[in-house]
Design a binder for these strands. Structure first.
Lengths: 293, 293
DNA sequence: GTTCCGCATGAATCGATAG
DNA sequence: ACTATCGATTCATGCGGAA
């Protein structure tokens, strides 16, 4: 079958461009769309009040091209309008569910290095949402690929196992929770949580970096295997596509802005896919609170 | 004027009890209501689908007793129902706005020791929402009281900033959030962000503390002065009231569960209000990424 | 007095089984 | 079909007694 639509960056509105992409062909959609009425200089802006109507026709295409076992991760945060958090994001969640999406989870991205700021009524906004949508309750998830080093407590405390730790099965009232700590012996990695600690991109780039490379990397690792297809319909400077390529996934990147389109193509050309196997997750950044925090 | 309704714990449904409290008399409402279908053994449980209807009559009383300059902070998190995050919390936000509340901000509580467990399609839930509602755009907020030591943040990140960070302004991304970060150099205290890192308390013999004392302490500090009135309509074991008393605020605590009612009264009796001034925020816990993280 | 270490336990969720 | 109950899985922290 023809798969020449893969591993390319497209210029145009994703709603139109995606019509060239077959049904049920994408494993992961990871994207950070233009937030309402921000980045006006590059995207022309969408009014907060019109955001849901603007987004949903595109979501219909995402729904069509996504495999039933696939996942859609949407990085978004509502802006402050007239002293209030605007509601377009939560309205979007409700609308997505109406259209058949499952709102499986909401990850939180804690932007560790956002610098202090002060306004009369609020502090610096230091987190963003990563909304996970799915089409089915069963979807592909490769949890082992994102495990993190166990917290320091284990080194000091896991040395000697107590009798109760070995067999707390009797589950006192309310708790209903037993454990068998001997399962943990020799374990040096644990599963992360739904809180992702990651610094925003600091390095100087000639684009407004929506997110650091580690962010798409984490989700690509979690939801895809090699040769799976990753789509970013608002690919911007191409970060998602670059990471997907490095990780040996197929990719589709779309952006309606010509400068970004050219930039993404250039960045991709520069990517050399390593011949050796990808390393384990680096410890330079924290994934979950078990990291170097 | 009579203020004998203050500094007391009440037994009953807050919707009824609050009728004894005058209009415009409360400076801060801080509470953590029973989440839908949780704590069934003590509170009977509210079905997720009925949660908004259950909550709103109570919110109407909150609206009446809260001063126009006051703040309502609601600690809540939706649970997973049938593989999805339930929508009752975001529906509650929309309903609150319909009734005239302003959704000013959403703080994030990162629970560093979240409940363990492993599931095929999700990780541990490690954060809760702290929804801030107000009645006016101008409200009382004492930001200086929650400043935190600069700590590692400045040492590691502020020291070697990229040129873009130093001069980031509207010209780059049109955010309008231009801040010259060098303004913050040389300070020893900075404002926190809207991400709060705090472990839940465990192993408290007498009661299952819904939240650690530092959580109400932080918001009481931020939104009230001494002798201001703090209300917790779901006071549980009394944590909010205890903290308010220690901090020399007036308080009203309400709970419908008799055991909690008695427990809260006992805890309050044991509180000795210190004669000396409250200390600065301790460095034992992290508030935002500016802390000791 | 400190530090160390045993120990309990938490706003959880899924899948299977039972009524 | 739909709800109620039960067993299995799992990590980080505070407390308190011991060293």
């Amino acid at each position: 079958m023809a798969s020449d639509y893969l591993d390319r960056i497209y210029l145009g509105d994703c709603e139109q461009v995606l019509k060239e992409v077959p049904d049920n062909s994408v494993d992961l959609i990871f994207t950070s769309p233009p937030y309402a009425d921000q980045r006006r200089s590059t995207y022309g802006g969408v009014k907060p009040s019109e955001y849901v109507d603007w987004f949903m026709p595109k979501a219909a295409q995402f729904q069509r091209v996504l495999k039933p076992t696939g996942t859609f991760v949407l990085n978004i945060k509502e802006r402050v309008v007239n002293g209030e958090r605007h509601t377009y994001v939560i309205e979007l969640i409700l609308k997505m569910r109406q259209e058949g999406w499952l709102w499986t989870e909401e990850f939180m991205w804690h932007k560790k290095n956002s610098y202090p700021g002060k306004w009369p009524n609020r502090f610096r906004d230091s987190w963003e949402r990563l909304l996970q949508f799915n089409l089915q309750r069963k979807f592909n998830m490769y949890q082992e690929t994102v495990m993190v080093p166990v917290g320091d407590w284990a080194k000091n405390r896991l040395g000697n196992l107590s009798e109760t730790d070995k067999t707390r099965d009797e589950s006192k009232v309310g708790s209903g929770f037993g454990k068998n700590i001997s399962n943990w012996l020799g374990r040096d990695k644990v599963y992360p949580t739904n809180v992702i600690h990651m610094a925003t991109e600091c390095s100087n780039r000639n684009h407004s970096a929506a997110f650091p490379e580690q962010l798409p990397e984490w989700f690509i690792r979690l939801f895809t295997l090699e040769d799976d297809v990753v789509l970013d319909p608002f690919v911007g400077s191409g970060t998602t596509a670059v990471v997907a390529k490095i990780m040996k996934r197929r990719f589709i990147g779309i952006d309606s802005n010509e400068e970004y389109f050219e930039l993404a193509k250039d960045r991709l050309k520069a990517v050399q896919v390593p011949l050796f196997q990808l390393a384990e997750p680096s410890e330079d950044y924290d994934l979950g609170e078990s990291g170097t925090e």
